[in-house]
Every structure is written in C-alpha cells, then in structure tokens.
Simulated assay, not measured.
Amino acid sequence: MNADRAQLPSRLDSARAVMGPLSIGAFVATDHATVRWLLDDEPKEATGVIVTETGLRPVTGHDFAGDPREVRERLGLDLAVVGVETSALPAAVGRVLGGRSLCDLTHLLAPLRSCLDEAALARVRFASRLASRAQTVFREGLAVGVSEAEVAAAVFEAVSRPHDAPAPIVDLMFGSRCALVGMPPTGKRLAAGETALLDFAPLIDGYWSDSCSTVVVAATPNQEIRRLHLAAMKALERAIALVEPGRTVGEIDRAVRDILAEAGYTCPHLTGHGVGLKQQDYPLFSPVSTAVLREGFVLAIEPGGYAEGFGIRVEHVMRVGAGGAELLTTHSLALV
C-alpha cells in the first residue's frame, strides 16, 4: 500500500463536499486525472471511481457491461441525479446512466485536484528538479555540428534513473525548426548563431513538471533574436510577479501578451497552464479566463514568440504560495 494513501481521506472529503450542496448521491469519476487523484494509482487497472456518501469504489469498463438497470442497481447508481465528468464520459457509462439526470462536476473538481497536497507536491518538486537538470545538460551539450538527436540522448541519459526512467514530453529544435513551436528531435545539426530550444516535461510517479529554455551558441545572437528573448524574459518576470492567491489567470495572460505585443510579437500557444496529474492541467491560461489562483496550485508559465527562421520560448514552474510564486524549476534562461 502506498504510504501517500494517508492523504486520500481529504481528497475524498473534498469530492463529497462538492456533491452535497447539489444533492448528488453518487459521482462517477472517469477523467484519468480525477481517478488517479482519488485512488493514488491503486488499483492501477481502475479506469473509474464511484464516490458515494459512504464509500469509494474503483471500477473498470467491465463493471458497466450488461443490462443497464441491473448495472445501476449493482453499482448503486439507480438514482435520480448522478455526478459525472462530461468531457471524459465513456459511452458505456453513458449507456448505463441513460435516463438519469447527469450533473457535470468537471469545473468544480478541477480546482480541487489542482491544489496539490504535500504528497503530490513532493512528486512535482522531484520532477521539477529533473526538468532543471535536463535543461542544464541541454545547455552543456550544445556545440556547432551536434545534432538534435545527440543532445536529446545526452539529456535522457543524464536524468534517467535505473529501472525508473522519466516518461517525458520533449520538444527539441535547432534553427528554423524553432519557429515550428514544438517538434521532436531529428538529425538536424546546429550551426553557429542559430537558436536551440528544449521544452522538457518529465512525468514521475504520476505527476508532471515542465521547463523550457532557448540558447544561442558560438556566435553573438542577432538583434532580432536578442529583442525577442528580452521581451519573453520581461513577460515571464512580470507573470511571476503577478502570481498570488486571488489573481485571475486572465489578468496574468493579458500582461504576458501585452509585453510581447509591445515588441511586435504574438504568442500562438498557451502562455501558461497548471501542472500536476496532467501535463497541461487546470487552469489553462487565456486572456478571457476567469479562473482564480488558489494557494497550492502549481503553474508553468511559458511566454514565447516565433518568426521566420527562429523562435524563442522561456518557462519556469512555480507553486502558488500565500505570499506569491515559489519557483520549483531553477535552470538558467540566459540566451548565451
């Protein structure tokens, strides 16, 4: 049994606290992140969880096979109102719940899941240290003539642990490929004065971190690259300064985009997102988001700009603390 299971009663109580005011007698969790949040990956084969006032039951797709009425009775779901996660509702579950009144709890559970308890935060801290290590190895491995694939191999070797290697998402690009925003490493070789970009997001024990930096080697960066990097750094520093409980995500996103726009650039992707059981979790940054930051959220903020022939992105991961942002990644963001 996982030692972190001691954290689970509070998670279960949080889910029940959402159900109570809505008079929901049972909730069928099917979003993989919510399932893992409630079960902490035990049992691993579970693809869903049924939460009631008196218990928690892991389930799989097989539990929903058969006559819908019999399944509802067997699983305690023969109720007038059942809570679900609409965006992740399997057809088999929907079939069984046909005729019931379904209440979507997605928007209520996501903020709760994103407030990481100490067990979850410890995993994200570890993943963040690996992400920072990956960025350091990336920077040290850059030289004229080296290939993207060779640098990626060095990064993987440096951060892997015996029998428990991280499962990362990796964008690694040189030169004009940096303008593609996010692509896996290839045999492309680095030329003097080109940008080199690594976005490295490791998954450790079910929890993610994230990181990104952009570097130029063996030549002085041209004026346009320097101008964009300066704008991205200003945007990131401003965003970090704004992080605090009660601040809306939309306000931070607009501040980032305004600084990039002043330099003549736009950011074609999210300027930030939550980090936890999903690599891009709640809250997702956008100019119109009304999501409010809470203490305990972990955020990745990643302003970037792209032009023909190059691209720049910088990123740090941070915890929302009572007094502001606590950086969890520590890698250099220097351009040279």
Results as ranks from 00 to 15, higher is better:
Val146Glu: 11
Thr86Trp: 04
Ser128Arg: 00
Ala167Cys: 04
Val84Trp: 07
Pro166Tyr: 01
Phe156Lys: 13
Leu142Trp: 02
Phe138Tyr: 10
Glu157Asp: 15
Pro90Leu: 12
Arg129Tyr: 01
Gly94Trp: 13
Leu79Thr: 03
Ala88Arg: 13
Gly145Phe: 01
Arg95Cys: 02
His163Glu: 14
Leu190Gly: 02
Ala191Thr: 01
Arg95Pro: 00
Ser147Leu: 02
Leu198Ile: 12
Ser128Gly: 07
Ser147Asn: 09
Thr86Ser: 10
Leu180Phe: 08
Gly76Glu: 11
Ala192Tyr: 11
Pro202Arg: 03
Val81His: 14
Cys103Tyr: 14
Gly83Asp: 04
Gly141His: 03
Ser209His: 05
Ser87Cys: 03
Cys103Gln: 12
Ala192Glu: 14
Asp199Gly: 12
Ala191Cys: 05
Leu89Asp: 07
Gly187Phe: 00
Pro162Glu: 07
Ala134Lys: 01
Asp78Phe: 00
Ala154Leu: 10
His163Val: 02
Ser176Val: 08
Met183Leu: 14
Pro168Tyr: 09
Arg113Asp: 04
Leu172Phe: 05
Ser114Met: 05
Val159Ala: 03
Leu142Met: 05
Leu105Lys: 09
Val144Gln: 07
Ala127Thr: 08
Gly98Gln: 14
Gly99Phe: 09
Ala165Ser: 14
Asp104Glu: 06
Gly175Asn: 04
Ala152Tyr: 10
Asp205Gly: 03
Glu85Lys: 03
Phe126Arg: 13
Leu77Val: 00
Gly175Cys: 04
Arg125Leu: 08
Ala143Thr: 02
Leu190Tyr: 04
Ala201Lys: 15
Leu203Pro: 03
Glu150Ser: 14
Ala149Leu: 06
Ala167Leu: 13
Pro202Lys: 02
Leu198Asn: 08
Thr106Ser: 15
Pro185His: 12
Ser147Pro: 11
Phe200Arg: 02
Arg133Leu: 15
Leu79Trp: 10
Asp117Leu: 13
Leu203Gly: 04
Thr86Leu: 10
Ser132Asp: 09
Phe156Ile: 01
Val71Cys: 09
Leu130Met: 11
Tyr207Pro: 00
Leu102Asp: 11
Leu89Glu: 11
Ala131Leu: 07
Glu85Asn: 07
Val181His: 13
Asp117Pro: 07
Glu85Tyr: 04
Ala143Met: 02
Lys188Tyr: 04
Ala165Pro: 06
Ala149Ile: 07
Arg100Lys: 14
Gly187Tyr: 00
Thr186Ala: 08
Leu102Met: 12
Leu77Lys: 12
Leu75Glu: 08
Leu102Asn: 13
Thr186His: 04
Ser114Gln: 08
Ala179Lys: 06
Ser114Ile: 06
Arg129Gly: 12
Ile204Ala: 00
Ala196Ile: 01
Ala165Lys: 12
Gly99Asn: 11
Cys115Gln: 15
Phe126Lys: 10
Asp104Gln: 05
Asp78Met: 02
Glu157Ile: 00
Leu121Thr: 13
Tyr207Leu: 15
Pro166Cys: 01
Ser101Ile: 12
Thr186Asp: 03
Asp164Glu: 14
Met173Leu: 10
Ala91Trp: 01
Gly94Glu: 14
Gly83Cys: 03
